[in-house]
Computed example of a mutant assay.
Amino acid sequence: MSTNAYTADSAVLAASIGSAVVYQAMVRASPSYSRMVIKTASTALLSVFSYLRGGPALLVGALALGSTGDAFLAWNDETSFLFGLASFLVAHILYIILFLHAGPGAGDIGAKLQVLQSGDTWRLGTAGALAVSVPAMIVQLMPKVGKGLRAPVAVYSLTIFVMALMALTLESKEIVIGAVMFASSDSILAAGRFLVPTTSAHQGWMHHAVWALYYGGQLLIALGAVARV
C-alpha cells in the first residue's frame, strides 16, 4: 500500500475517533439532525477506513450497516428503533459469516466450537457467561417490551450471542474484546430502554457506557480484522 493510502486511512480513522469523542459529549442531548450526523459519521468512517485498508467486504458492509443503525437509533420513536434493530441484525449476521470463515476451523461450526472448547480458559468462561446472561436478559425483556417487539428483540439477542461466540474462536484478541464490548453495549442499551425507568439516575452513565462500549467494540473489530489482511 502506498504512503498516500496510509495517510488517507489514518486521516479517516482520526476523523472517526474524533466524531466518536464529540458524540460522547452530546450523547444525552435531544435528538437532532446534527447529533445524528455526528453519531453516524463515527462508524461510517470506520467502514471507509476498513475499505481503504483493503479490509474484507463483510467487515466494510457490517460497519456500514452499523452506521445506518446509528442513524435510526439517533431518534427515539419505535419505528426508528425497529429499523435500527434490523440494520444491526444484518450487521451481526455479516460479522458471524466473517468470523466463521476466519481463523482455525474456518467455515466449520463444529471445528470452531472445538477450538473454543480447547482454547484459553478465559474464552470458554466468557462463552459460558454469555450463554447464561443472554437468555436471562431475554426473559427479563419479554414482559417489558411491546408484543410487536418481542420476536425481533429475542432474535436479535440470540444473533448477538452467536456473533460473540464466533469471535471467541478467533486468535485476534482485538476482535474478541471488540465483540464482547459490542454485546455488552447492546445489553446496557436494552436495559436502559426497557428495564430502567427513564427518570433513574442510572440513565446518565448507561448512555455514556453504551456509546463507549459500542464504538470501542466496533473500532477494535475493525482494527483486528484489517491487521490480518
Rank of each mutant, 00 (worst) to 15 (best):
T7L: 12
L130G: 01
T121I: 10
L141G: 05
G119I: 00
K173R: 14
V22Y: 08
F83G: 06
L158E: 07
S187T: 08
L98V: 05
A190Q: 04
I17R: 07
D186M: 00
L219S: 08
A14H: 05
K39G: 09
F88Q: 05
E171S: 15
Y23T: 02
L158M: 13
V37E: 03
V210S: 07
A102T: 15
I96K: 11
L141T: 10
G69F: 06
V176T: 08
Y95N: 12
F49A: 11
T159W: 00
G125L: 01
D70M: 03
V210N: 12
A201W: 04
S30K: 14
A212S: 15
F182T: 11
T169C: 14
T121D: 10
S67H: 05
I96D: 00
V22Q: 06
Q114C: 01
L82P: 06
G146V: 08
L141K: 10
R53K: 15
L85V: 04
A5M: 12
R193H: 12
G110I: 00
A29E: 13
R228N: 09
H207W: 14
S67N: 05
A86S: 15
L100N: 08
T43L: 07
L13D: 08
G125V: 01
T40M: 15
T68E: 07
S47N: 04
R123V: 00
G107Y: 04
A164P: 06
D186T: 02
F83K: 15
S16K: 08
K173M: 03
R193I: 03
T79D: 14
L141Y: 08
E171L: 01
L45N: 03
V145G: 13
R123W: 00
A212Q: 12
P197W: 09
V90P: 08
L220G: 01
I177K: 05
G103F: 08
I177L: 14
W122F: 07
R53F: 01
A136F: 09
G66D: 02
G103R: 03
V12M: 03
G105P: 09
L85D: 07
A106H: 04
R193F: 02
A102D: 12
K144H: 11
L158N: 02
G128D: 04
Y215E: 03
V90W: 12
W211S: 11
A191E: 12
R28W: 01
A129I: 04
S172M: 01
G216P: 10
T159H: 06
F49M: 06
S185N: 10
A20K: 03
L149H: 08
Q218L: 11
H208N: 14
I138N: 09
M206D: 09
S67R: 10
M181Q: 14
G55E: 04
L52Y: 11
G128P: 00
I175C: 07
T126L: 11
S19R: 09
S30C: 02
Y95E: 09
A212Y: 07
A164V: 02
A5E: 14
S34L: 14
